[in-house]
């Protein structure tokens, strides 16, 4: 038998994201929440110390989670476990890889460690996901080795408006490349501040070369269905589940609405009697320094 096994190849990293498509990835802060998420049908969980809503409330520096806490979650569930590292924090990412997380989110929800550079993600065996607000940002992250992209939204607000803005922006940026001539693609690469090869690839494929999820402010089954309708491959739900009245029921409803996003009667059915949704924040009331989406570039 051939024994030339290669780990950490682009196909293995990007392929992992393909397996998550059509699914919901849920933020969890302990093993008990992870259990609820897996039982509800989550395709993966994101282990973090505080959900974004609490990071907003508590303030201070938000960092990678305690490895003990991540270990407990890994021990609890059989689905993939992701964890967040600060933007540019190479060592946090090395630590997360060494304890066996399945995906690293280099995330603007945590306080950035480097205000100029992201992590060189090609150096890792574990795959990375990064946030983006537009196509140029998405392609810069892919150039650095991200194997999956999520639209940023404004995490911890329970307000879907920024997720919608970012998803629509990425999609319309892609649409503008369709049918562009080679000359125009060079100019597009300059304007997008992204490598020409990736821009040309997007123009040819009509989509990103990696899986595109959505995140930030998704609080209801209808929010999740809306994001799928706008072209997301899947959904991250952070504070929306465990800051609500009945997390188990809401988690299951969001999974069902994501699968059946184009069937309003099913979205209606699962939206009934869910109890209280998380209290939302109007983005206008946030000062510039309170916005996470502006972190990363």
């Amino acid at each position: 038998m051939a024994n030339a096994n290669s780990t950490g190849t682009p196909r293995v990293k990007q392929g992992m994201a393909e397996m998550l498509k059509g699914g919901v990835i849920m933020d969890v802060i302990d093993a008990k929440q992870a259990r609820i998420a897996e039982d509800a049908g989550a395709v993966a969980v994101m282990a973090l110390e505080r959900v974004p809503a609490d990071i907003r409330k508590d303030g201070g520096v938000a960092r990678m989670s305690d490895p003990d806490m991540i270990d407990e979650i890994i021990a609890e569930v059989s689905i993939p476990v992701m964890a967040k590292a600060r933007i540019g924090h190479i060592v946090e990412a090395q630590v997360l890889q060494s304890i066996g997380v399945d995906y690293i989110d280099e995330s603007e929800v945590l306080t950035p460690a480097d205000e100029a550079n992201h992590i060189d993600k090609w150096q890792f065996t574990v795959p990375f996901i990064c946030g983006a607000t537009n196509l140029g940002e998405a392609l810069r992250r892919i150039a650095e080795g991200a194997a999956m992209i999520r639209s940023k939204g404004e995490a911890g607000t329970g307000n879907v408006v920024e997720a919608v803005r970012h998803m629509r922006t990425i999609k319309s940026d892609i649409a503008k490349l369709k049918g562009a001539s080679k000359e125009e693609l060079y100019t597009a690469a300059k304007n997008l501040q992204a490598p020409y090869e990736l821009v040309a690839q997007v123009a040819e494929l009509g989509k990103l070369p990696v899986v595109l999820f959505t995140a930030g402010g998704i609080a209801t089954p209808a929010d999740a269905a809306l994001m799928m309708l706008l072209g997301a491959d899947g959904v991250f739900v952070g504070s929306g589940i465990f800051k609500s009245g009945d997390p188990a029921q809401r988690a299951k409803a969001i999974v069902d609405a994501t699968t059946n996003f184009d069937k309003p009667e099913i979205v209606a059915k699962v939206s009934r009697s869910l109890g209280e949704a998380m209290v939302g924040i109007n983005i206008d009331t946030l000062s510039e320094s309170e916005r996470f989406a502006g972190r990363g570039w």
Partner: peptide
């Protein structure tokens, strides 16, 4: 996931050198 890999596989009735991706 860090152990996920690709390898060339011989498959009976299908052929050899099949690039098999295990995730």
């Amino acid at each position: 996931q860090v152990d996920s890999f690709e390898t060339d596989l011989n498959i009976k009735d299908i052929g050899d050198a099949f690039k098999a991706v295990f995730i």
